[in-house]
Design a protein around this nucleic acid. Structure first.
Lengths: 109, 109
DNA sequence: TCTATGTATTCGCATAATCGAATAGACGGA
DNA sequence: TCCGTCTATTCGATTATGCGAATACATAGA
C-alpha cells in the first residue's frame, strides 16, 4: 500500500476510533448490542436527554457504526457490525490489564 | 456492576479509544507492533517531527498503551499489550466493511 | 388537513486537543 | 565536570468537540 493511501486509511480509521471515544456512545453501543432500539427508548434506558442521544446516534451513523430503520413514527437503530462490540471488548480487556498492572493487584511474576 | 462504576469504567474505556483516535498515533502503534523503537527512529521512519512523536508517545504512555525502557541515551518504546493491535485490526475490518457497503463494491448477495 | 408523538437540528458557550517553533532536561562518554 | 546526543516540555494560536435549551421536522392517525 502506498504511503498516501495508508495515511488516508489511517484517517478514516482514526475517525472510527474517535466515534468510539465517548462514554455515552460506548453505553449506547453496548445497549444496541443487546437489541435494536429507538431513540427515546435509549434515552430513557440510559438516562440521557433525547437530543443528546440523537446527536450521538447521528455521529455513529455518520461513521457507519449503526444502521437505521423506520418503524412507524419511531426510528430503530441497530449495530452495523457485531465486530464493533468485539473491538470494544478487546480494548476493555487491554484497559483492565493496564489497571491491574498499575494497581499491582496482579504484581506477581 | 453498579451504574456509577460502569460509567467510570466507560470513561476510562473512552480515554483508551481517544488515544487511538489519531492517524499519527495509529501509525506509531503499528510501527511499534513491528518492533520496539526509540523516539527519533520513529520520527524518521514515519516522517513526523520529533517533538510531535514525543507528545503522541507521552499520551499513549499515559493511557498505558506503550511502555518505555531506557537504552543508553535513547528511550525505547514498545506496545504494552499485543491486543491493542488486535483491537485496531478489528476496527479496521469494520471500517473496510462499511466502505464496501457504501461504495457498493460488494453489493452482491 | 390537523394533531400528537418521536426524532433531528440549530445556537451559543465552555472545554479540550493539535500543531509548529523554541527551549529545557536527561543521559553517557571522554 | 563538560559536551554532544536524544528526549520532553512549554507557549500561543487554531481547530474541533460536547452540552443544554430551544426549536424545527417527520410521520401516522383521525
Amino acid at each position: 500500500m502506498t504511503y498516501p493511501l495508508l495515511q488516508e486509511l489511517n484517517l478514516l480509521h482514526a475517525n472510527v476510533c474517535q466515534a468510539l471515544a465517548d462514554p455515552k456512545r460506548i453505553l449506547i453501543l453496548y445497549a444496541l448490542a443487546e437489541r435494536p432500539r429507538h431513540v427515546s427508548a435509549l434515552a430513557e434506558a440510559l438516562d440521557i436527554p433525547q437530543p443528546t442521544v440523537s446527536r450521538h446516534l447521528a455521529l455513529l451513523r455518520q461513521q457507519s457504526l449503526v444502521l437505521t430503520m423506520r418503524e412507524g413514527p419511531a426510528v430503530v437503530y441497530r449495530l452495523a457490525d457485531p465486530r464493533i462490540i468485539e473491538a470494544l471488548d478487546t480494548m476493555r480487556a487491554v484497559l483492565i490489564g493496564a489497571l491491574e498492572r498499575q494497581s499491582g493487584l496482579l504484581a506477581v511474576d
